[in-house]
Design a protein around this nucleic acid. Sequence first.
DNA 1: CTGTTAGCGCTTTCAT
DNA 2: ATGAAAGCGCTAACAG
Lengths: 343, 343
Amino acid sequence: MAKLTIRDIARLSGLSKSTVSLVLNNSPKVDPETRRRVLAVMRRNNYVPSFAATALAKGNTGLIGMIVPGLTWRFMADINYGVAKVVEDTKYEIVLFTSTNERDYGGAIDRVLSSGLCAGLLVVAHDQRQLERLVDLHRSGLVVVLIDTLGAESDLPAVGVDNHTGGLLAARHLIELGHRRIASMLGPLNHAYVQERLRGVRDALREAGLAPDPALEVETDFDEALVRSRTRELLELPPGRRPTALFAYHDSAAFAVLDELAQAGVRVPQEVSVVGFDDIDAAAHVRPALTTVRQPFARMSERAADILLATLDHPDSDGTPQRLVLPTELVVRDSTGPAPADA
Amino acid sequence: MAKLTIRDIARLSGLSKSTVSLVLNNSPKVDPETRRRVLAVMRRNNYVPSFAATALAKGNTGLIGMIVPGLTWRFMADINYGVAKVVEDTKYEIVLFTSTNERDYGGAIDRVLSSGLCAGLLVVAHDQRQLERLVDLHRSGLVVVLIDTLGAESDLPAVGVDNHTGGLLAARHLIELGHRRIASMLGPLNHAYVQERLRGVRDALREAGLAPDPALEVETDFDEALVRSRTRELLELPPGRRPTALFAYHDSAAFAVLDELAQAGVRVPQEVSVVGFDDIDAAAHVRPALTTVRQPFARMSERAADILLATLDHPDSDGTPQRLVLPTELVVRDSTGPAPADA
DNA sequence: CTGTTAGCGCTTTCAT
DNA sequence: ATGAAAGCGCTAACAG
């Protein structure tokens, strides 16, 4: 079953390639009856135009690439949803690139991407090295918009949230509840958003006349086990230094903290309060329901897609790169409460 | 910054297009020194070959598509990992297609796919309609391998697990623990694997001389709230009919069940035992740790990729479509225990 | 080892 | 409203 070409369809319907092409592209210049006939022939023969040939002739693949660091992050679904919603009523399609191993990320993938496979790129990347690579590509003409990657040292177009205020809100909430020893369970410090949130926490502390305690700023990564062991270490601090509240850089990390606390018999929020970040769906369902800082993932990615599409259709806007900062919002649930009186 | 073509590179390095092309394709026939020079010119000018042109000329895009129903399923990471591992040392790249809205799934996406964007397709799809579409495409030449989609009424190449035995193992385990009233919290019945697992449970029941009780076979979907309310309904059954064990079609559903049970003050496993399916990482971390049927996701997808690649490199094997069934394995943890004596 | 010459399947003026 | 012809950027024989 050799693949049919436009020529075959032309022959089969007694027309020329050009006319068939016009049909393919919904040209109004073709006779309705003719169009119907051609379409019928196509259907009957299961014809589909060659992607490569179309892309080559048009000089555009009509594909928008999306690069994400991993698939399991809960909010990927929201991000994906936002993008899909915007892109689905355009002529573009989305292809998603992921990679399980780090070395690929910088190599094979953007080889494909930079080769013009995709007209534009939406990227979720927190790694500084990846961003640098993107800056290069951007400079040489790649249309790219970052999602949720603000504050990094690049001036790529991006939409993200105000992480500083996010950290600030979380810490203020805790301070208002009377907490004085607030621990931060941080993500990798080489991620800009982690730094920003920490800065927010510290600012809130200073605002209240409290000095940030380095011992309460612990760095972790995406390994849950590490989060758990750090949590235990925090609990083992002497009574006067032990935190009464814990701000986790990530809801998933907060879940691990919550669980570890439960294991240790520490009651939340009576003895220790916990705040997360992201507000993924599960946050409302764990026990106790998690107080957390909400990121508007779907809206973020929608806006990013908007910017990308606008740039694609309007390549002349070589002015200032677009950067959009969306607000975060504190969602208070059951995992935070007044600081214990005896603390 | 107009995009450079192979012709520019040829001119810039004083050679012909063909030689440059040979360099591009790592031909050993080109003089090492010449190659070096050409490569330097390319680097210096930031040249990247056009994807579309290459694909058209080669008659192959070098892309393997992967279609998945959603991104949040925990095991997607494993599946992705398995595929990446196999594909990364071939000339192919992986692109992932997802869709948030159902109608897309059958339309735009496979338009892209069938148009030769991808040389082959790896698909995770449980929906019967989607499968039918794939059968069509397969018949007209698309190379496709299904992952985790066995038992569906198609003879597409596929690798999956023995869901019947999975259900059987889970139920037998429960029966051996003395349980007599075993409820099945099923997924959508139009998914073949759901049927298979249920068949396994029933067979185990019959084996033990027990009659499957329709009231204990409840259908749910991927909505967690539904799982929760069904769980409550089960708990409200009169003492003599209330299940002492619950088999959930999915670890995530099992988590919801566990949580709902905890809410209701029902102790697991003392009063009710719970078994899941999949063995996603979280299964070992919830409290109580979940007894579950493990699916070897990474291995599944590896084998699927193997089959796909073999078919791609060996299009003549028009014989019997490959179908591979991998075994499941019962992982006993803390959520199952002896049936309560008074039951 | 390098150059010549045809295409790959489709779009796109420009005629008719 | 339809057709002819010239590419899009690259590869792949085949010569040399």
